[in-house]
């Protein structure tokens, strides 16, 4: 061991070469080791984001370089009823789907947290909607919501509840609720499994202590489970809101934004205008307009929910 220790040069020898000098500088080494990760981030995250925002300030079209036009795209969008409809749709879609995903996901997590036979099996099953590629499940829902061959319409008809098929994707509000239902189905596993993980961090002895303190099951949920789960709920719901707000695949497969733009979200409208429509600049402006919404969602969860005084130890 003594030999090894001797080999490590604690102080660079006096006549060291430049390379050796630089290589033993901790700041330079730090920079060097950071480079690969930084390069990846810059190339695949920052550059596309920057390019997208930049495009929003130009009149670029497919096949034609644009020039900087300032806020002209955004001014145009302000008077665009379809854009405002998509904003409304996106908010409705995000709010309703997130609330449903939270409620059902928490309920499922509480159920899965109970002692029951084949626990691991059920937990695995619950993950399936999350594991299946979105496009695949969207196609399945497309079939379920089909105007003629819908299994839902068929079942309800057989039960004698309805006379004619439901026009799931052809009617404005039907289409909105249908895509929300599909999104909820897909999003529940993420919420449920994450909250289940959170539930399992709550020590059993707290529930026992609360039982001896005289709580009812509802009070245990209200006073123990919910407050202790809040930090996890904040993180999970932030992600859930972000995923929902930026959803694209499900809508694009099911309705392409129709009927009459009733299910167009900001993401699908942005794509619609930019690629099939050819107005890259305008599409980018719509996408850029999503950023303030997303940032405010993140800030709300970070400042409003995530930080709890009781989580901080040590100082007052």
């Amino acid at each position: 061991m003594a030999v090894d220790a001797d080999r490590i040069p604690r102080v660079a020898p006096a006549p060291a070469g430049l390379l050796e000098k630089v290589m033993s500088n901790r700041h330079f080494l730090g920079l060097l080791f950071m480079l690969p990760a930084a390069a990846l981030l810059l190339l695949f995250l920052t550059y596309p984001l920057g390019l997208g925002v930049w495009l929003g300030f130009t009149d670029t079209r497919i096949g034609r370089d644009g020039v900087f036009i300032g806020l002209e795209n955004f001014e145009y969008l302000l008077d665009d009823t379809v854009f405002w409809l998509s904003v409304f749709n996106t908010i409705l879609y995000t709010v309703v789907a997130s609330i449903l995903k939270f409620g059902l996901g928490l309920w499922l997590a509480l159920l899965l947290n109970q002692h029951m036979p084949c626990k691991a099996f059920f937990r695995a099953i619950v993950l399936l909607p999350w594991v299946v590629p979105t496009v695949l499940s969207a196609i399945a829902f497309w079939w379920i919501f089909d105007a003629q061959f819908s299994i839902l319409s068929w079942a309800l008809r057989e039960m004698g509840l309805i006379d004619a098929n439901i026009n799931f994707l052809g009617d404005k509000w039907n289409a909105r609720w249908s895509v929300i239902a599909a999104n909820v189905w897909r999003g529940i596993p993420f919420v449920a499994i994450s909250l289940l993980a959170g539930l399992q961090t709550i020590p059993q002895s707290l529930y026992e202590a609360a039982t001896l303190d005289g709580t009812t099951p509802w009070q245990r949920f209200r006073y123990i489970t919910l407050p202790l789960l809040t930090p996890i709920i904040a993180v999970v719901m932030t992600f859930s809101v972000l995923f929902t707000f930026t959803d694209f695949q499900l809508i694009y497969v099911l309705t392409r934004g129709g009927p009459i733009n009733a299910t167009h979200l900001m993401a699908t409208l942005s794509f619609q205008r930019a690629i099939p429509g050819g107005f890259l600049g305008e599409g980018a402006a719509i996408a850029t307009a999503m950023i303030p919404f997303l940032l405010s969602a993140i800030l709300f969860s970070y400042f409003g929910l995530q930080r709890r005084r009781w989580q901080h130890g040590g100082q007052d």
Binding site: P203, S205, L206, E208, A209, A210, T211, L212, D213, G214, T215, Y223, I224, P227, L228, R308, W310, Q311
Partner: peptide, 19 residues
């Protein structure tokens, strides 16, 4: 348990961390 009128001190104290 709640009607037995007993109180218990647990090995890990089981204090409610958010109170």
């Amino acid at each position: 348990p709640k009607e037995r009128d007993i109180a218990m001190v647990f090995q890990n104290y089981a204090l409610y961390p958010h109170m």
